[in-house]
Each structure stands twice: as structure tokens, then as C-alpha cells.
């Protein structure tokens, strides 16, 4: 291929972005793999241990617990967000004059910083003074019970992330040609048939994109749960990110912590590859 076809002008424009990306994301990604192959606790020299950390990982019950929590958290919250998001999108599409207000209201949870949302819900869940216990009529220790705590975290994530799903699906809904819906009505299809046979299939690609986006986000969840519960009680809400963070920055074990990080990379990688595959069709 000749130099002219390689478009040096284009690469020159992209170079600064690619350099920063390499420095801040690609290089550390390589480095973390190297770290995971070494023993690197504080105040000690580096020591190559090969796959030692990964062997330890395979037998680490806390890792499997965190993985289970993460997968459960992701599966339940994404499913709820899609269902609620679709319902809200359908409502917003028919909002009429109230549209600007409704969009604005739905955007609020999206705009609230994650840490703030954790603090808001922590207060709502407060066993003695929380408004949720008050509404339930009896004080409940939402965040103190292992089963309740994980679901309390899921509820918070659903509140925070459903707007994104709803707005994405709304944009998808607005892309369904009106003539198609009119044609269906003329052909005698009822509202439910039209929804199931036309709207839903047309929306399928967007639903898929929203699902993958949200899944990847939910799999790496850190700040929301960390601030809400700190991973407790008794590690019942400890996700992979929280476990890795604790090993890295509380136990200061950079070797094993990095191995946990690489495990997360692998999980995210699988999800991201699925996504890149989905998008390839759209970009070309």
C-alpha cells in the first residue's frame, strides 16, 4: 500500500488522542497483567510468581462469592432496568405537552452523581430514621440483612440507571416509522398486536444495545455499592470491583489485587467483544 493511501493527514489528527488513550488506558492494561504475575506487596521488592496468583484465585471462596454477587447484581438490575425503561419510554412517547417536564424529571437520577445517589439511598434505607421503614410501617434493617442489602443496592442502581435505558429506547421508538404503525392500524391490528408484532421487533436492536451497555456498566459497579454498604454485611454485597479495590488499597497487595483486576478485564472483555460485534454492522 502506498503512503498516499495510508492517509498520513488523518493519522496525524488522530495521533494526540491515540497517544493519550495509549498512556491512560492501553499501557496500564498491559502493566496490570505484568503486576498480576508478580508479588508486589508494599515495602517488598518485586518477585515473579507467574500464574501463582491465578491459582490462588481459583481456590479463593471470597472471589467466587464476589463474582456471584456481581453476576446476580448485573442480571437482576439490567433485567429490571430494561423492563421499567421500556415502560417509561412508551409513556414518554405519549407525553405530549408534558414532554419537556417529563424528560427533565426522568433525567434527574441520571444527573445525580453516583456517590450522592448512594448517600441518598443510604438515608432512605436508614433503619431508624429512613423514610422507607416509615412507609413500610415498621423499622427494617435494609442494609444490615445480607439478602435485603444486595437487593437494596439493586433497587438503587435501577433508580439511577433506568433513565438512560428509557431515553435510549425512546429514541428507538421515535425511529419506528409512523406509516408502519398506521398501516398496521389500517390492517386491523389492535394496540397489543401492533406493539408485539411491529414496535418490539423494530426496537430489538436498540434494546440489545441498551442491554449490553448496561450489563458492562453493572459488571464493573463500584462506587454505588461501595458507598452504600461498603460491601457488607458479611461481604453479602461485595462485588468484584470492591473486592479488587480492597485487596489493592486496603491490604495493599498489588500482585493479587492485579490478578483480580485481570479477571475483571476478562469478564469485561467478553462483554465488550460482544458489543463491538453488534456495532460493527452499524458503523460501516
Amino acid at each position: 500500500m502506498s503512503a498516499r493511501r495510508l492517509r498520513p493527514d488523518a493519522w496525524a489528527l488522530m495521533a494526540p488522542a491515540l497517544l493519550v488513550l495509549a498512556a491512560v488506558t492501553a499501557l496500564p492494561t498491559g502493566y496490570v497483567v505484568w503486576l498480576s504475575l508478580n508479588e508486589r506487596a508494599l515495602f517488598r521488592a518485586e518477585d515473579f510468581v507467574g500464574l501463582g496468583h491465578y491459582l490462588r484465585l481459583a481456590g479463593d471462596a471470597r472471589f467466587w462469592n464476589a463474582l456471584g454477587n456481581t453476576l446476580y447484581f448485573a442480571a437482576v438490575s439490567v433485567a429490571l432496568e430494561l423492563a421499567l425503561g421500556l415502560a417509561i419510554a412508551l409513556l414518554l412517547a405519549r407525553a405530549g405537552r408534558a414532554r419537556a417536564f417529563a424528560y427533565g424529571a426522568v433525567l434527574v437520577p441520571w444527573a445525580v452523581p453516583t456517590v450522592v445517589s448512594a448517600r441518598i439511598w443510604e438515608w432512605i434505607y436508614n433503619p431508624e430514621l429512613g423514610v422507607l421503614g416509615y412507609l413500610a410501617g415498621t423499622p427494617v434493617n435494609w442494609l444490615g440483612d445480607p439478602v435485603l442489602a444486595l437487593h437494596a443496592a439493586i433497587a438503587m442502581d435501577v433508580w439511577k440507571s433506568t433513565p438512560f435505558v428509557a431515553l435510549l429506547l425512546l429514541a428507538g421508538l421515535q425511529g419506528v416509522p409512523r406509516d408502519l404503525l398506521r398501516a398496521a392500524a389500517v390492517d386491523g391490528a389492535g394496540a397489543w398486536t401492533t406493539f408485539r408484532r411491529i414496535t418490539l421487533p423494530m426496537l430489538a436492536p436498540v434494546i440489545l444495545v441498551a442491554a449490553v451497555f448496561r450489563t458492562i456498566d453493572a459488571l464493573r459497579v463500584f462506587d454505588a455499592v461501595y458507598v452504600l454498604t461498603g460491601g457488607g454485611p458479611a461481604n453479602a454485597t461485595e462485588t468484584l470491583s470492591i473486592y479488587a479495590y480492597r485487596v489493592l488499597f486496603q491490604m495493599l497487595d498489588f500482585g493479587y489485587g492485579s490478578a483480580l483486576a485481570v479477571a475483571m478485564l476478562a469478564i469485561a472483555g467478553i462483554a465488550a467483544l460482544a458489543y463491538a460485534r453488534l456495532l460493527r454492522g452499524g458503523m460501516e
Binding site: L21, V24, T25, A26, L27, P28, T29, Y31, V32, L35, I216, L219, R220, F222, L240, S241, A244, Y245, L248, F249, F254, G257, S258, A261, V262, M264, L265, A268, G269, A271, A272, L273, Y275, A276, L279
Partner: peptide, 18 residues
Amino acid sequence: VVLSMLPPVATVSPLFLL
């Protein structure tokens, strides 16, 4: 796109050291 999906916790230790 793939880079945008990296979990932050995966690169936090190298970035801390770097």
C-alpha cells in the same frame, strides 16, 4: 469502543503506580 468498556478498577493499580 473496547477501551471505553474497561472496568476502571482493572487499571487503577497501574495508574496509581504510574
